[in-house]
Amino acid sequence: MSTIIDYAPRLWEGLVVTLQLLVLGSLLALVIAFAAGLTRLSRHRLVRLPAAIFIEVFRGTSMIVQLFWFFYALPFLGIELPPFETGVVVLALNEGAYAAEIVRGAIKSRPAGQTEACIALGIGPAKRMRRILIPQSIPAMLPPFGNVLVDLFKNTSLVATITVLDLTYMGLEVRTNTGETTAIFATLLVIYFVVSLLLWVLMNGLERRFAIDRTKKSTRIKSWILSQPRGGAGA
């Protein structure tokens, strides 16, 4: 175990890269989610179709396959991205596709009366979406967004396979150097678990902050976590 402590700075460096991937990836994923989700709600087939294809392709294939494709195959088409950027883009596209379905589902499930009231009051489609439908849909989006966030965080580990020096990559390197297999993997798993817990607590807090019915008794964090399905799988 003591040898691991000598290597703690390396693991710390890796964790910083992992957290950078998490932050940049989730911000970009959010943008993609709203862009694709709202496009898919369009009345025009030609607008809807590209969004639908994007969502189905990225949900229908594995993220590690997408990562390898962007890293190894895309250069053959003349587009070459550095490993870290590839990681951020693929994380965002993959989880953004899952989140897009959440955006679409939440907005679509608003009662028709909201849209009808807007029409009666002469509120146009753009303003209706921006001021009425989206704000109302946020409480419904937050719990599934939480799953996607945790999934995105866990998936950051995959970038180690395309030589990004993240926490997993550093862990494997320290293992090779020290041979402390059990201790290093226990350390890695605990670090990932602690960050996941923090993300769960954060999302639970956001959910309560945005809840429409704020008097509702707060659920215990553990039972809340367990009630969350795997991101996108149920969508």
């Binding site: 180690a160 396979t161 997993t168 798993l189």
Partner: peptide
């Protein structure tokens, strides 16, 4: 649920 499949 809180740890990556890859690391597992």
């Amino acid at each position: 649920r809180g740890t990556p499949l890859l690391v597992q």
